[in-house]
C-alpha cells in the first residue's frame, strides 16, 4: 500500500482524535498534549510534502492532502485575523472578506513552499514551554534531509475547548505570523487604512 492510499485512513484517524478530544473539554490541557499534537500533525504535513519536493507525479493530489492537513494543524482563520491587527475592526467588511480569502491562499502557498524544504524529513519534538493557560511553545528539530542539516522549529500552540491548533511558527529564528502582521499592517497603514492595498500586494506576490 503506498503512502497516498493511506491518506484517508490518516485523515479519518485525525478526525477521530479531534472528535474524541472535543468531548474531553473538562480535562485541563497539558504541555504533553500540545507536544503530541505537534509531533503527529506537523510530521504528517512534512511527510505529505515528500512528493512535492521530489516532483512526484500527482502534485495536485499532494497539494490537496497538504491543505487538509494544514487545516488540522493550523488555525489559518485566526492567523488571518491576527495579521490584520487593528485594521480588522475598522475596515470595510467586503474588503475584509476579500482579504481573508486571498491571505488564506497566500499563507497556505507560503507554508507549502517553506515546508517543502523539509519534505520527507523527520520531526522530533524536543520539549515545550507553557506560556499561560492553553498557550504553549513546542520545540522541535527537523533532520534527515539530503544535506544533513538540522533545523530548530518552534510552534506556538493554543488550546481551545480541548482542540489544539498552531497559530505561529518560528523558523530560522523568525516568527512567521508576527512577521506577516508587520508587513500587512505596514502596507495598509501606508495606504491610509485601505485593506484592499494589502490584498493587491498579496496577489502580486503570488503571481510573482
Amino acid at each position: 500500500m503506498n503512502r497516498l492510499s493511506l491518506s484517508p485512513v490518516i485523515i479519518g484517524l485525525s478526525a477521530l482524535i479531534l472528535i474524541v478530544s472535543s468531548f474531553n473539554t473538562a480535562q485541563a490541557s497539558s504541555p504533553q498534549d500540545a507536544e503530541n499534537f505537534v509531533q503527529t500533525n506537523a510530521q504528517a504535513v512534512i511527510s505529505t510534502l515528500r512528493d512535492y519536493r521530489s516532483g512526484g507525479t500527482d502534485l495536485s493530489a499532494v497539494k490537496r492532502e497538504f491543505r487538509q492537513k494544514i487545516d488540522v494543524l493550523a488555525d489559518v482563520d485566526r492567523v488571518t485575523n491576527f495579521v490584520l491587527g487593528r485594521y480588522r475592526r475598522s475596515a470595510d467588511p467586503a474588503a475584509l472578506e476579500e482579504f481573508r480569502g486571498v491571505f488564506r491562499e497566500f499563507a497556505i502557498n507560503a507554508y507549502e513552499r517553506e515546508l517543502a524544504n523539509y519534505g520527507g524529513q523527520t520531526l522530533e519534538v524536543t520539549g515545550s514551554v507553557q506560556r499561560g493557560e492553553g498557550d504553549y511553545i513546542v520545540n522541535s528539530r527537523i533532520y534527515g534531509g539530503p544535506e544533513g542539516r538540522e533545523y530548530d522549529v518552534k510552534w506556538r500552540v493554543l488550546e481551545h475547548n480541548g482542540q489544539y491548533k498552531v497559530v505561529d511558527a518560528e523558523v530560522l529564528g523568525i516568527w512567521l505570523a508576527q512577521s506577516q502582521r508587520d508587513q500587512v499592517t505596514s502596507i495598509i497603514g501606508d495606504h491610509g487604512g485601505d485593506v484592499s492595498a494589502a490584498t493587491r500586494q498579496l496577489r502580486n506576490r503570488m503571481q510573482g
Binding site: A110, G173, I174, Q178, D182, Q183, I187, Q201, R205
Partner: peptide, 21 residues
Amino acid sequence: DSLDRTAIDPYVQLRTTYHQR
C-alpha cells in the same frame, strides 16, 4: 530563500527579521 518564499513586503520582512533576531 525563506524570505523570498514567504515575504509579502520583503523590505518590511527583513526589518522585522532583524529586529526579532
